[in-house]
Structure formats: C-alpha cells, structure tokens
Design a protein around this nucleic acid. Structure first.
Length: 591
RNA sequence: GGCGAGGUAGCUCAGUUGGCAGAGCGGGGGACUCAUAAGCCCUAGGUCGUGGGUUCAAGUCCCACCCUCGCCA
C-alpha cells in the first residue's frame, strides 16, 4: 500500500547560519527518513522553510543597518545553497514571507477565532519612546527584583536563575537603543488553550507507547504542572503577518504561532507549483497520512502541545475560510525530537563562533562523511558531542575501512580479473546463500529501524552487514581461488558484488552521494534519487526562491537483482582518508 | 525552584518483561594479500554517577542525593 508521508522540519530562523547541530538535529534525520520512504515507493512530501519574521531577524537587521527583508533573504539563499550541497531533498523549502503563507496563516487565525478559541486581553509591556515601539522581554535589561543582580534580562535572571515577570524589573534599559523604557498597556489576542487541554492530553496519551519518552513525558508533565493557560498569539510589530482583524493595525502574529502553520502553507505552495497529482489535501485532510515533525528538544512544547492544539482548534473551519478542501486537519503522527550536539565538549554558540557551519565544512570536505558522522553520532537519546579526532577516526576507520574499502576491493579485483565484466555465477554454495539471505533480511531490519527513526541503530546495522561481506570475502578468498577454480571464484565475486549493490541501496538514505556514484558504475543512467532545483516565485510581497524536488529516481528499497555479464567502469575510491593533523587544524579554527 | 531526559569499558554507545555485564573503535598478538597499510582471526578492559532499600537475584524496581542538558506559556 502506498502511504502518504509528510516530513516536516522545524523552520530555521533566517538570522544565523546553520551549524552541524541544526543539521543532525532535524534536517538530516528528516532527509534520511524521507529518502527511505521514497525508495519504498511511498508518496513523500518534505517541507520546511526559513522563518523570516520574529525578533532575531529584526535585531540582526538593526545591527547591520539593513532591513529585516534583506536579512531574511540573505540567510534564506544561504540555507537553500546548503541543502543542495548536503543533499537535503526538500520537496518544498520556502519562507514565511510569502503571500501564500500570509493567506494560510490568516485563515488559520480566523478559523480559531470563529471557533471561539481566541480572546482579547490587555497587559502591560515595556515600550521604547525613543524607538517608538514595544520591546520583547529579552531585550529589556535591568536589576533583578529577586536577587538584586544587575544585567538581568526581562524574561530571566542569569545570576539567580529565576524566571522573571519583566514588568517588575528595576532600572530597566532597552537593549535595542539604550533608552529607558516605560510600561504601556497593549491589547492582544490569546489562544484559549484551556479549552483544548482535554483533547491535547488524550492525543498525547494515545502516543505514549510509540513516541520517544522525552517528548511525551515532557509534554504531559508540562500540562500537568499548571494546566494549559491562554497564550498570546499577537505582538506589537511592524515586521510579520498582520492580524486579519479590523482595527488591529500595527500588530502582527507572534512567530511561535505563525511559523508552525508554515508546515501547512508550504505543502499548499508545493501543491500550487506542482502538477495535478500534487494535492495538499492528501496529506492534511487524510487521517491515514503520516506527518512527522523533526525538531530539536527545545521545540518540543510547540510541536507536541501548541501545534496539535492549533490544529484541533482550527478543525474543519480552516478549509471553509481558506476556501479549499473539506474536512478536519490531521494531527501529527510522530515528533521524533532530538537532543543537542555539542562542539568539542562545549555548547555550540554562534556569537562565540564556537561551532562548525554547514557551508564552511562543505568547502573543505565531502557531504557524505559529514552525513555519516552526524548520523552515527546523532543525539537521539542524549546530547552528543562533535569531536574532530573522532570525526577523522570515524571517517578513516569506519566509513573508509569497512564500507569504502569493501566496495573498492571487490570492484577493483573484478575489474582486473574479469575485464570489467560482472562474471556469470555457477551454483551458489551454502555460504553464498547465507550471505545473500543475511543482506536480504537487512532490508527489513534497517527499514524498520528507519521507520522508528532509530537512525544510529539503522546505520550501525547496515555497517555490520558490510562487515559481514568483508568476512565472507576473507573466508572464500577469491584471490586464491581464482588460481585453482576460476568458476568458483567467479561465483564468489558475483555474490559479493550483488551484496554490495544491495548495501549501496541500504546505505543510500544515509550516504546518497557516494551511493549514487557506486550505483552509476553498475547502472549508468538509472539514478537512485531525483533532483533538486530552485524556482523563483512572484507574488504581492515580491519574489522568493523555493527549493523543490523532481522525483525522477529509479531506486527501490529491495535486494539487488543484478545479473552477470554486465560491463562496469573502473572504480575510484568512494571516500578519502583524512590525515590525523586535520583534527588539530580544525580545532584551531574554532573561536 | 518545578517538569523532562541523560550519567554503563580509554572513546562512542546497546542493554526489551529483574536472571552469569555487551558491540564498534582504540590498545596488544597472529595468519593473509583482492583492497584506500584497508579487511579477517585471537586477546586485554568495567565499583553500571553516589548512598540506602526491596528481592534467592538489581545496570534494570523503590527512596534520597550529586552532575550535564532542555523547557517553564
């Protein structure tokens, strides 16, 4: 049965470069999952985009003396370039600053309003008369009213660790312009989460056996602690999506509320730009569709509590207001949140330049070694650590030695002794069949692990199978056999090539570039995967670039059916060994 | 402070319902030579964060504490 698989990745803020922690946290696991399902023949749509709105973008623009639009466009272009070079195959990577997203988000807002899940409330907030605007809590500094420490932020005091009520902060100063802010009343829309609490709780309870423990337990624990309270969904901002209600000029939707709606709007944009087979309704109004959110642990409450609440609240009314489709919006199938990756035992930090940035890495190294290291070290159950010595070691001792060398030794040997033609096998021995059976079972084992998003284990299992082929070769020793029994040696080599051809498929979600290269040796003109391309979209807000995917791949998640007698080109090594000194050089780049 | 996750071999991590502590890599030794001095075989190693408790039996269950990370509308 063909499944509808929606793969949704947390939207990166268009105000800072993407580092290895971001990649291993969400984009990479999502891509591996999506590629696997594409090979399985399922209908996959993988969506995300740049979060163009929000305070970080505005702050960056102020700092650089430019506009939020320019800042967001610059980072968006950078992200699109990175995903292409790293092979993150988005069907639709867009931005939140599009006419389409505005319309979807506003319809969503109005659906919640019509269904009675919004209310208005007036609160006091710091206001800079100098800049003529309200200040986000974390951009107000002052003296902590609990411990008396200076330099406390409006939302938290780093000295005593307390969460603060920003309006009680003493001697406040605006971090944006250095002025002394004043408290001013402002009215906002709130999402009435208390009315949705019961539905969210039963939704989470239904996922208890299936979702990762940290996701379910943290979410249920949060709700149990205080209950779900109303939460503001609008802010006093110029830059963002206007509140679609008369008399609300100068107010925009809060990004936490608006950005997650991007999953829906990106799918709708994908539909509009695609052919008649591309239907957003198949993924959003279909209870059997499987929608998974790939996020970091900091984002759990927004995807496991807020977003389900938003979807439940909008319900069938969204379609009515939006004017397309009919039915209830589908709730998430899974939220496989990852923990964090540290850099050389310290937290990754953009401002301290402590990290490895995706594009910078790819200017010196190939994408697959990065994907390999980030997968085998993925922070699935606890924080993990990027260590340059470990990177070099994993590259040389695992990737090159176990898998790269296996492919190279077999293909080189065959090319030398059989003139570049895969030999015809004779009768298969017990050992031959045992190896091929083992590999065949691997498709189920590895596939199931990927479906459960246990990607470290999945990759380890595939590597273990590669190791099994190495053992098989040493046991059968075709380089000796070829001197005494050429037909037996031919059979052995054929079996080994078939095993490698299968492993290439099994590893291709993880290592797409080198798998494609290996595949091209054996099946010229039959690529495993499709192609990425960019497209410029014009609308009332200007133009934006989207990254899209053309599904022209021929790869299938099943054992090799390669026949003897096929000519193949002389192989080149798939990976490079790295000098040990690389680790020292790279560490010197930090900070 | 509250909630959640994590703490197991030198390193990175597995350990399902309690039942003789596991893997990969690194270290030590060996046979081979197709291969990127890669691969294969053998081997060494651990007070399972700490302290109590339950049990015939605890990495696993209970209590307290320590450390790391995240969240707290």
């Amino acid at each position: 049965m063909t499944e509808k698989i929606l793969v949704e990745i947390a939207w990166p803020y268009a105000s800072a470069s993407i580092h290895v922690g971001n990649i291993t946290g969400s984009h990479l696991p999502a891509d591996i999952y999506a590629r696997y399902h594409r090979l399985k023949g399922n209908d996959v749509v993988m969506v995300s985009g740049s979060d163009s709105h929000g305070t970080p973008v505005t702050v960056k623009a102020d700092a650089e003396g430019t506009t939020p639009l320019e800042v967001s466009k610059k980072y968006h272009q950078e992200f699109v370039e990175l995903f292409q070079k790293l092979g993150i195959h988005y069907d639709q990577y867009t931005t939140t600053h599009t006419e389409n997203h505005f319309k979807v988000a506003q319809s969503f807002f109005l659906a919640l309003k019509e269904n009675g899940f919004l209310y208005e409330e007036t609160q006091k907030q710091w206001y800079s008369e100098k800049a003529d605007r309200f200040l986000p809590d974390r951009y107000v500094e002052g003296t902590c009213y609990i411990c008396g420490a200076e330099g406390a932020r409006g939302d938290q005091c780093d000295h005593c660790g307390s969460m603060l009520d920003s309006t009680l902060l003493k001697d406040p100063i605006s971090k944006m312009d250095g002025s002394t802010p004043v408290l001013k009343e402002t009215t906002h829309f709130f999402l009435d989460l208390s009315k949705l609490e019961d539905q969210v709780v039963s939704f989470l309870e239904s996922k208890q056996e299936f979702w990762r423990a940290n996701v379910v337990k943290q979410s249920l624990g949060w709700i149990k602690a205080k209950g779900l309270l109303g939460r503001p969904i609008t802010r006093d901002l110029e830059w963002g999506i206007p509140v679609p209600v008369e008399g609300w000029d100068g107010k925009c939707m809060y990004v936490w509320f608006e950005a997650v709606i991007g999953y829906l709007s990106a799918t709708i944009e994908w539909d509009k730009l695609g052919d008649e087979n591309a239907k957003w309704e198949d993924f959003w109004l279909n209870p059997d569709a499987k929608a998974s959110h790939f996020i970091g642990k900091d984002n759990i409450p927004f995807h496991a509590i807020m977003w389900p609440a938003q979807l439940l609240g909008a319900g069938e009314t969204f379609c009515k207001i939006f004017g397309e489709g009919q039915g209830k919006l589908t709730l998430p199938y899974d939220v496989p949140a990852n923990e964090f990756m540290n850099m050389e035992d310290r937290k990754i930090s953009g401002s301290k330049n402590w990290g490895v940035w995706g594009l910078d890495f790819l200017s010196r190294y190939d994408p697959d070694p990065l994907r390999f290291y980030l997968t085998i070290n993925m922070p699935e159950t606890r924080d993990s650590n990027w260590d340059w010595d470990d990177f070099v070691r994993r590259n040389n001792d695992d990737l090159v030695a176990t898998w790269g060398n296996l492919a190279n030794r077999v293909l080189s040997f065959t090319h030398k002794k059989w003139d570049g033609i895969i030999p015809e096998p004779g009768q298969l021995s017990e050992a031959d069949n045992a190896l091929l059976d083992s590999i065949e079972k691997g498709f189920d084992t590895v596939g199931n692990l990927i479906e459960e998003v246990k990607l470290r284990a999945a990759l380890s299992e595939a590597m273990r199978l590669a190791s099994e082929v190495n053992k098989y070769l040493d046991d059968t020793a075709p380089w000796t056999l070829v001197k005494t029994d050429p037909q037996a040696a031919a059979t052995t080599v054929y079996v080994a090539i078939k095993a490698i051809d299968s492993l290439k498929t099994m590893l291709s979600p993880f290592l797409p570039f080198t798998s494609e290269k290996l595949n091209s040796y054996l099946r010229a003109g039959q690529p495993l995967f499709g192609e990425q391309y960019t497209q410029t979209v014009q609308d009332n807000l200007g133009e934006h670039t989207v990254l899209r995917y053309k599904a022209t791949g021929t790869g299938q998640w099943k054992p090799s059916d390669l026949k003897g007698g096929i000519a193949f080109q002389k192989p080149e090594p798939l990976y490079k060994k790295l000098e040990k000194e690389v680790a020292e050089e790279e560490r010197a780049r930090l900070n």
